[in-house]
Every structure is written in structure tokens, then in C-alpha cells.
Amino acid sequence: MNLQQFQQSISTLFPQQLLEDFTGDYGFTSKKNDCISTIGYCTNLSLEVMEQAAANNVDLLITHHDAWDFLYGLQEACVAKLEAYNISHFWIHGPLDMIEFGTCTSLMNELGLSVVRYSTYDDDTEFPGIGEFHLPVSFEQLAGKMSSTLAEPVRAWKNNEKQVKKVGILTGAGHASQHLKMAYEQGCDTYITGEVTLYTIQYAQFLGMNLLVGSHTFTEFFGVKSLCEQLENEHPALRFVPLKESHFELQNA
């Protein structure tokens, strides 16, 4: 596969309107290598990840996040290393959060939830995905399942005594109170995201809605994995390699 064929696959998998809605929130950081036989994937672009990519003979690295602009100098350092290792890099942020097989849905699948409503983007606003258990589970069961799925500790606030039935999810940075409000108005008894602030905690408590928080990295990893599974279905000859990232965000939780 070459990069043009890869771009065609992305255009096939993602609706044009969704890509237009998130113009500038996906694309190539590097097009160094045009002959793709091995794809490596993870959530974040980092220097550590690129060492693994090079060791695994990766031709194309796919991540959810590009190097953040406010991590000053990281973008330039990553580009230099991509060039040195002859690796192309493609990142896809907003479209992967809002596609039906993306970050929210893939985490629901991992936790055993059935999709009630996909995460969506409309009028410059993100709406959390909604999932439901066929049979209610205890809050403790869900917290344990999430911790084992992410392979990391999760922060848990139990704010009601109900069995967990309906769950709102907005992975990554879904900590804004407006997102909790949307989930609550859809009848959710529990909310899951990948970052938390004082306001997230206080508002969940005020609503009486349980709150579960994993890391930004690992609540979103399964979305990148899901994208690669879609690509593998279309290009079965390709080799896909998951790259390991540290659980540094919650190691002291």
C-alpha cells in the first residue's frame, strides 16, 4: 500500500462531512515513507513511541493525537525523528472521536455496553455517546471492569445507590460539565471520561451521577485499534503492530 491508497481508505471509512467538520484536526505530520507494509498504532505521538516503531520496522505510524502545540519543541523533535527513521505519520483526532466505530463506541464494546446513541458532533458541540447494559451491574463491578480493560487504576466516585444501567461516555477530555449534563438528561446514572477537574467531580456529585475516570491515553486507545481493524479488513496483507505507552497519567491515583 502507498500513502495515496491509505488516504483513499480514510476517505472511504469517514464521511466527507465529518472530515470537513474537523478540517485541521487530522492529517499527515510526515510523508517520509510511501511504501507501507507495516503500520504501528497508539494514542499519542511521542519520541518513545517512535523508538518502538523503528524497532518494529514500522513504515506508517497512526495516532489519535498529533504532538500537542503547547508541548513546546516536541513537534519539531518528532518530525526530525520520523525523518531519521524513514517513518510516515498520520493522526486523526476529531473524526475518530465521532465516527461510529471510534473512541466512544470502541470503549463501550470493551466494557460490554450496547450502543444507545453514538457520540456526535453538531453545531460546534460534542455530544457523549450513550450505552446500556442488558442486565444492570454494580458500580463496583463496572469500576473493576474498566480498570482491568484499561490495565490501569481508575478514579471512581459513587454518587448514587442504583445498579448501573445507562452510561454516558466521552473519552479523552470529556470532563466539561455540559457533557455531564447531556448524559444526565439522557437518563444516564453513570458517566465515563478520560480527564477530570474539580468541576467535573462537583457537578457529578450534585447530579447524583456516578463518575469513572481513566486516563486520556487509554480511554482512547481502543478507537485507534478499531480504526486499524477497519484498515486491516480492507488491506489484509498489511502488518499491524500496537505500540506500548506508559500509564503515567494515573500511576499515583
Rank of each mutant, 00 (worst) to 15 (best):
T219P: 00
Q202S: 13
G94W: 08
T197I: 02
T29M: 13
T171D: 01
T193W: 02
L227D: 08
K181T: 09
L113N: 04
Q141D: 14
K225A: 14
T190Y: 04
N86P: 03
T217G: 02
T171E: 01
M98D: 06
L231R: 06
L135C: 06
L211S: 05
S11I: 02
S9E: 14
F90P: 02
E20K: 12
M108S: 08
L74M: 10
T43C: 09
C78E: 09
H134N: 13
V164K: 01
L198M: 08
A237Y: 06
N109L: 05
F101P: 13
G73M: 08
L238T: 10
E51Y: 10
T197S: 14
D97W: 06
A156M: 07
C78Y: 02
A143T: 15
E234G: 01
F14C: 07
T125W: 00
E20S: 09
D25P: 00
E232V: 05
V116T: 11
A183I: 10
G94H: 09
T23Y: 03
G144S: 15
F222R: 08
Y184A: 12
K225V: 08
N159L: 11
Q7M: 12
E110L: 13
A77T: 06
H216P: 03
I92W: 01
G27P: 09
G214T: 11
Y121M: 03
V224E: 03
V58I: 15
P153Q: 07
Q251K: 07
L135Q: 15
E161Y: 11
G174M: 09
K81D: 10
E20N: 13
R117T: 07
G131C: 11
T12C: 02
A173V: 05
D66N: 13
T12S: 06
C78Q: 08
L47V: 14
N252D: 15
Q202N: 14
V167R: 02
D69I: 11
D123F: 06
E152V: 12
T12K: 05
A143S: 15
E132C: 10
C228H: 07
T197L: 03
C42A: 15
T63P: 02
F139R: 00
T197W: 03
G194N: 06
H64E: 06
Y41G: 02
F222D: 00
F240A: 04
W68Q: 07
E195T: 12
E161A: 11
I39G: 00
D21F: 10
L211V: 13
T120L: 01
F218Q: 06
H235G: 01
Q202P: 00
G24S: 07
S46I: 04
G27A: 06
L71S: 06
E152A: 04
Q230M: 13
D122Y: 10
K81C: 07
F22T: 01
Q16P: 00
E234Y: 01
E100C: 04
M209S: 05
R117D: 15
N86T: 15
M146H: 10
G174Y: 12
L13A: 08
W91R: 01
S215F: 04
G208F: 13
G112Q: 11
V137S: 00
P136F: 10
D25R: 05
Q5H: 08
A143H: 08
K244P: 00
L3D: 09
L19Y: 04
D21H: 11
L212W: 03
Y72T: 14
D122Q: 14
S88T: 12
N210D: 15
M182P: 00
M1Q: 07
E152D: 06
